[in-house]
C-alpha cells in the first residue's frame, strides 16, 4: 500500500507540476484571475451593495447562494454527528448508578437505582469519570468568557467594515462556550443551553438566511435579491442590500455558533453527554 500510495502521489504531483508551467507567476497583477472578474467586484461593490468590505459583499450578496449552502453544510455536519453518535437509550450499566458530589466537602457519593439522595441542595450531579478542575482555570475562563463573546458579536456586526462576518464571529462565540465546557464540565453547559435549544437554534440560523432569500422570492423578485426588502426595512434599495447582508450574517453566526457547540458536545462525549475528554 505504501508503494502504491507513493507512486500515485508522485505521479499526481508530477502532473500538477507539469501543469503549473502554464500558470501566471505568483502575485502577477495581469493574471486572468486578477483581470477578468475581480475588477468588477472591487470597483462596483460600493455602488451596488454599499459595503466596503468586498469579501463580505461577494460572500453575502453576489455569491450569497453559495454561502447559504455553506451554512447548510455546517448544519448538516452538526446533524450528522448527532444522528450518528447520540445515544438516546442508555446502556443498562449506566442507569444503575448515578454519582453526586457534596459541593462543600468534595465527597463523592454513589447512588444505586431506587435509592434517593439525602434531602439537601448541596449535592451536584457529576459523572463517574469527572475530575474537578482547578480554581484558577475555572475563574480565569469565567472572567474571559464575556470579553470573548463581546468580541464575537463585534466581529459579526462589524463584518461590513473590517475583516469578519458571521462565520468568524460564530466560531468565536462557539469557542467561548466550548471553553466553558472544558474548564467546568459538559453538564454545566447543558444546563445553560439545552441540547434541544442548540439543535433548534442551529436550524433557525440557516432558516434566517434562506428565509430572507425566500422572502425576496415571495415579494416577487428572484431568490436572494435583497432589493425587494427595501419597503420592509424602510430604507432605499441600496441600503437594503447592506442591511440584508447583516441579517444573513447574523443567521450564519447563530448557525455556526450552535453547530460548534453541538459538534463539541457530541464528539467529546461520544454522544453520551456525560463528561467527555
Amino acid at each position: 500500500m505504501k508503494i502504491i500510495g507513493l507512486i500515485i502521489s508522485v505521479l499526481t504531483g508530477a502532473m500538477l507540476v507539469y501543469a503549473a508551467a502554464d500558470f501566471p507567476a505568483w502575485s502577477d497583477p495581469s493574471s486572468p484571475a486578477s483581470t477578468y472578474l475581480s475588477p468588477h467586484f472591487i470597483e462596483k461593490t460600493m455602488e451596488e451593495t454599499s459595503v466596503p468590505n468586498i469579501v463580505t459583499a461577494v460572500l453575502a450578496d453576489y455569491r450569497s447562494f453559495d454561502t447559504m449552502f455553506e451554512t447548510a453544510v455546517i448544519f448538516s455536519a452538526g446533524l450528522v454527528c448527532f444522528f450518528l453518535l447520540r445515544t438516546t437509550r442508555r446502556k443498562e450499566s449506566e442507569t444503575e448508578t448515578t454519582h453526586y458530589r457534596h459541593t462543600l466537602t468534595g465527597v463523592t457519593i454513589q447512588i444505586k437505582e431506587g435509592h434517593t439522595l439525602p434531602p439537601s441542595d448541596e449535592f451536584e450531579r457529576i459523572d463517574s469519570l469527572w475530575t474537578p478542575s482547578g480554581l484558577i482555570i475555572k475563574t480565569s475562563c469565567r472572567l474571559l468568557v464575556p470579553f470573548i463573546q463581546l468580541f464575537g458579536l463585534y466581529v459579526i456586526a462589524h463584518g461590513h467594515y473590517s475583516p469578519g462576518g458571521g462565520f468568524q464571529g460564530g466560531v468565536i462565540l462557539g469557542a467561548s462556550i466550548i471553553m466553558l465546557a472544558i474548564s467546568y464540565d459538559l453538564r454545566t453547559i447543558i444546563e445553560r443551553i439545552s441540547e434541544k435549544m442548540v439543535a433548534v437554534l442551529c436550524a433557525v440560523g440557516v432558516l434566517i438566511f434562506s428565509g430572507t432569500g425566500a422572502l425576496c422570492l415571495l415579494l416577487g423578485v428572484n431568490f436572494l435579491d435583497y432589493n425587494a426588502l427595501a419597503p420592509i426595512l424602510l430604507v432605499d434599495p441600496l441600503t437594503a442590500r447592506s442591511h440584508a447582508i447583516l441579517i444573513v450574517e447574523i443567521g450564519v453566526g447563530v448557525a455556526v455558533m450552535t453547530t460548534m457547540i453541538w459538534l463539541y458536545c457530541n464528539l467529546s462525549s461520544a454522544g453520551k453527554y456525560n463528561q467527555g475528554l
Binding site: 484571475a33 469579501v55 461577494v58
Partner: peptide, 8 residues
Amino acid sequence: PLPHVLML
C-alpha cells in the same frame, strides 16, 4: 476578493 470568498 473572489478566492477568499471561495475558500471561506
